[in-house]
Design a protein around this nucleic acid. Structure first.
Lengths: 335, 335
DNA sequence: TTGAAAGCGCTAACAT
DNA sequence: ATGTTAGCGCTTTCAA
């Protein structure tokens, strides 16, 4: 049986209260006593029992990350994992543990209610994929420490943190102009793909500032797949005057775009520049290595973790939103 | 303040012991009493406090997954995340929580000792990337419930679970022969890349069975990158007689291989078949969609989770190893 | 079938 | 500066 505080107290010739005090650094304890206690701990190889401690303090030092983790999430949505890494980092630093929970929107409410009810966690970081109005209500009513990753698409009381895809689009366009490209085309995802749409919006706003419009022939909608990116690019290349830069809504599309350009005998980045979003490892592995507007998703996780801890400490804290900045990563697909 | 067992007992007109008993289903309680208790719980919206419960039972119902989570692990090593998903699934089923901890081999020992000492977790699932002889000793000495994912490369007392890459190599070669391919080439990773080497070994053993040897010209070592795969393939194609099937050590290499074949005017799968390992989502997105020897890593996680729970319940249980089977996934890169 | 009571190991208010 | 003591909420043994 492991040594308990009582054992330490006995050996040090003090009370458990004193031991507790030197353990927690609070209150004033004379150096000699403290030393004796520490010595006793050492001797008994004493480790305070976390469960007992948390129980007495009514805390768990656990935060749970709720998300819908589908098949191959790690690969198809690497951001998810980067967020987890960032979270883990921030929480670990403050001696919190990160619990991962795979759940869908339907189950999230019950899970949180249950977990909160049994006091099995101190707070929740919730991926936007599992929020619902019902959840909003629960969290608001019970004032549950939380943080949503991703902007909710309905009126809500959530605290959330997100990425600015519109701004990323602006940055892409602005960068291309700056590099001397003049005729920009946008290879988009589905019309209902919000990320793609926001990126396009950003691009358009920059075009407007430059007093140019995006010709119909320079915009195609497809799906987030290589084949689709290939097709769209081929179509765009049929335009009377060929664009000199392609902005691809995402990596999958970009890959098809690159293949189509190659097949058309065009040289990247001299004939045509290519830029896309998100620094997926593949954008570095494919050749040419793609210039990208990246987002430090890891940092989103770190921020979320820090905010989370704040909110656990001060439940009345209310930060509605926080947006992280994209950054440009220049590589070989642009001049 | 949330209702406690005392409140329930008072309302139901029983003792807390009785409440506890109906809660745990154990012991005999008369139906009428049990009903009264349940009713009281309902009425008070009572949730047993997990911390108190675990504290009294001296358990945490937490398992931690230890691994070195580098940048972009989600993408570069999607298996890691799939394992996490499988683990989470198996643990959730038995009401265990999964804690994620990012740590390196140097820190693992201290972390486990500390976590075990403070009784903050019931068991550990440890990725092979963070094991050490020191850890082996600690775990053995303290008989800590654990399970290592990946075969240790030194004499040890660990319980571990792994994947059979050698067998996967065999399956790839056997399949190609069966489909009528006759001249197989192997596009390998680094010489020290164990996974690549094991796959190659499997291939060689099948070749041997067919009384054929792998010509020098049909084997190249490189690195796990597209460019390298491209180069190696180009070199292999210089052989006097060109191979009719390429076995690529992994997806990255396979991607380069496909590009090189295209550039050489060869048609996949008719002129040359291509097969690789691991069903990365990219193997489905690239065109042609790659035939692959896949491994159900998710299932490895599930098994690990189940084993873990077994070991927590019966610490003396000793399962040294367990190996999962690869499966063939036929797609467009082979006939 | 039920209840009383002694923990589980630590914290913190209060007293000294 | 240190000790006393009453919890924290639940489990479980033992007695009734």
């Amino acid at each position: 049986m492991a040594a308990t505080m009582k054992d330490v107290a006995k050996l040090a010739g003090t009370s458990t209260a004193t031991v507790s005090k030197v353990l927690n650094g609070s209150y004033a304890i004379s150096e000699p006593t403290a030393d004796r206690v520490r010595q006793a701990m050492e001797e008994l190889n004493y480790h305070p029992n976390a469960a007992a401690r948390n129980f007495a303090k009514q805390s768990t030092r656990c935060v749970v990350f709720l998300a819908e983790l589908g098949e191959n999430t790690g690969f198809s949505n690497p951001h998810m994992f980067e967020i987890v890494r960032g979270l883990e980092h921030a929480l670990s630093e403050k001696a919190y543990s990160l619990i991962i929970k795979n759940i869908d929107a339907a189950g999230a409410c019950a899970y949180i209610e249950q977990t909160m009810g049994t006091k099995a966690a101190d707070g929740f970081v919730i991926h936007a994929s599992v929020i619902s109005e019902e959840l909003d209500e629960l969290i608001y009513k019970e004032s549950i420490p939380h943080l949503v990753i991703g902007m909710p698409h309905f009126t809500n009381h959530f605290c959330w943190i997100d990425i600015d895809n519109r701004l990323a689009g602006e940055m892409a366009a602005r960068y291309l102009f700056q590099r001397g490209y003049q005729a920009l085309a946008f290879v988009a995802g589905e019309d209902k793909d919000e990320i793609s749409r926001h990126r396009l919006e950003g691009v358009l706003s920059v075009l407007q500032q430059h007093d140019v419009i995006l010709p119909h022939a320079y915009l195609r909608n497809g799906v987030s797949e290589c084949d689709s990116g290939y097709q769209m690019t081929k179509e765009i290349l049929k335009a009377d005057r060929r664009p000199d830069a392609m902005i691809c809504a995402n990596n999958y599309i970009a890959y098809g775009c690159v293949l189509a350009l190659r097949d058309s005998g065009l040289v990247i980045p001299h004939d045509v520049g290519v830029i896309t979003f998100d620094d997926y490892p593949f954008s570095q592995i494919l050749s040419p290595r793609l210039t990208v507007i990246g987002i430090d998703v890891y940092d989103v996780g770190v921020q979320a973790g820090k905010q989370m801890i704040q909110k656990i400490r001060k439940p009345n804290l209310y930060i509605q939103s926080y947006i992280t900045m994209p950054t440009l990563i220049e590589r070989e697909s642009t001049i």
